[in-house]
Amino acid sequence: MADRFAVVTGAGQGIGRAAAQALLAEGWHVAVLGRRAGTLEETLSGSPSGASHGFVVTADVGDRAQVEAAFAQVLERFGRLDVLFNNAGRGAPAVDFDELAPEDWEGVVAANLNGTFFCAQAAYRIMKNQSPKGGRIINNGSISAHAPRPGAAAYTATKHAVTGLTKQIALDGRKHDITGSQIDIGNAATPMTERMTKGVPQPDGSMMVEPRMDVAHVGRAVAHIAALPLDANIPFMTIMATKMPFIGRG
């Protein structure tokens, strides 16, 4: 089809902004979804086609009612949905396991796991019932879906759960031509990883400055997965700063 339609959550900054702008650059129509309209408008204004091919949808992904209303807007505006990049999420303060506050645990679960599920389910329903049916759901898993950082119980647990959710989407979606993919990202240069330029705790108790990569590489990787025909899939992709301490012992 000449026109392709996508939703990017958490599109107001960082990885979400880079992915939305990469899709816009490839000619996609993109709904940028997040909590703050101002930052979402900035995402669109940073793309030459943002005004003509993008629109802002405000919602908190952890709130089911807001998610359902947001995807209803998308369906009304686009008429169909081809890709969801499930990117919205948050972390919590790095603390020892027994010091994690219940409200921080619940906030991370609401955004990273509940929000991923709510958005995926809303997108799945549209993709299942549209004609021609089918579409692609891409979840932001993170390298923390494979290996934890010190003091990150909530983030690690939710990102491991996202991997199971991705596999389930891929399995259940087969009969509807819906694919499930996950991109695991390590140390992209965004506001969320700015602290790494000053040093972050390592498993051996030391502090170390960690390398980062240009977030635009992540955006292009998402756009590559999105552009595949539905008879091909990249179920899991890892993109990371080459010299970050992930592969090996540290």
Rank of each mutant, 00 (worst) to 15 (best):
M1T: 13
A6T: 03
A11F: 01
G12Y: 00
G12N: 03
Q13G: 14
G14S: 01
G16W: 00
R17I: 04
R17F: 00
A20C: 08
A20W: 01
A22D: 03
A25F: 02
V30K: 03
A31Q: 04
L33K: 04
G34K: 01
R36Y: 08
T39D: 08
E41T: 09
T43L: 01
S47D: 05
S52M: 05
S52T: 10
H53S: 09
V57I: 03
V57G: 00
A59T: 08
A59R: 05
A59H: 03
A59P: 06
D60E: 15
V61F: 00
D63W: 08
E68D: 15
A69M: 07
A69G: 11
A72V: 10
L75V: 11
R77E: 03
L84N: 04
N86R: 05
N86G: 15
A88W: 00
G91Q: 12
A92W: 02
A94V: 12
F97M: 05
D98G: 14
E99Y: 10
E99I: 05
E99N: 11
E103I: 14
W105N: 06
G107K: 08
V108I: 05
V109C: 09
L113E: 07
N114V: 13
T116A: 15
Q121K: 14
Q121T: 07
A123W: 00
M127Q: 13
K128W: 04
N129Y: 11
N129M: 08
G135I: 12
G135R: 11
G141K: 10
G141Q: 10
I143R: 04
A152K: 13
Y155S: 06
T158K: 04
T158R: 07
A161C: 08
T163E: 09
L165Q: 07
T166P: 11
Q168F: 13
Q168V: 15
L171N: 14
H176F: 15
H176G: 11
I178Y: 06
T179W: 10
T179V: 12
T179N: 13
G180E: 12
Q182A: 15
I183E: 05
I183Y: 02
N187P: 02
A188P: 13
E194Y: 10
M196H: 13
Q202L: 09
Q202W: 12
P203F: 07
D204S: 10
D204P: 03
S206C: 08
S206V: 06
M207R: 06
V209R: 12
M213A: 09
D214E: 14
A216C: 06
V218Q: 06
G219W: 01
R220Q: 14
R220N: 15
R220W: 10
A221C: 10
A227I: 06
L228Y: 04
A232Q: 15
A232T: 13
N233D: 15
N233Y: 08
A241M: 02
F246T: 07
G248Y: 09
